[in-house]
Design a protein around this nucleic acid. Sequence first.
DNA 1: TCATCACATCAAAATTATTCGATTTGATAA
DNA 2: TTATCAAATCGAATAATTTTGATGTGATGA
Lengths: 104, 104
Amino acid sequence: MEDYAAEAKVFKAFCDVNRLQILELLRSGEKCACVLLENLQISQSTLSYHMKILCDSGVVVGRAEGKWTHYSISEQGSQVARQLLERLTAKNICTQYSCGCVKK
Amino acid sequence: MEDYAAEAKVFKAFCDVNRLQILELLRSGEKCACVLLENLQISQSTLSYHMKILCDSGVVVGRAEGKWTHYSISEQGSQVARQLLERLTAKNICTQYSCGCVKK
DNA sequence: TCATCACATCAAAATTATTCGATTTGATAA
DNA sequence: TTATCAAATCGAATAATTTTGATGTGATGA
């Protein structure tokens, strides 16, 4: 039994061109939202929208510091995504031969 | 320089609840479209639409046999997705310290 | 050939996602 | 307190995705 909606949410992070650009920027280390903004051709509210999706996926984390928020790639969240992808594409040998030992 | 649209397309496969269900069904081995259909609460044309997205992502391949089409998870496509995810979330040590050896 | 079956494609409708300007919130500093 | 700045949220518009019934296509078999 799977919560497919929650799993889909993780991969939403990688489904949009703007978000892939943001991830690319974060690969070189933690960045303030204002730095991200000046490297992208989107408005402040649009950036905020995408940062929310990225943070909800767990792949990115935000760190509030005074007025600023610094974003970075979460090692843990990335690991979860990798393991999830592995699991979603791994062949299920057990049910492959209808051995009946797996319910669904 | 990245083709973000092409990369996003790979992860579209994992962004939708119906497609995750289809992948789960395929994990236990190759399935005919008719078998997928009777295990999902969607119409035939909707299934066809999702199978197209899955095949376009490379994660699923279709094998035509007479009137039927058999779908299965592509080991190669899955590998590509895994490596891509790895690359998108890996820290870029080189630019991290602004050594300048990486253009963008 | 003609009927049938499996699947793809089309066209239109419904639902979601994305975008931006305006506004709000929350923190900082004068 | 008041002004200012960074970021989130709101509201409305637009764009993209998803869905379905109807139809088209291509293979099979009578």
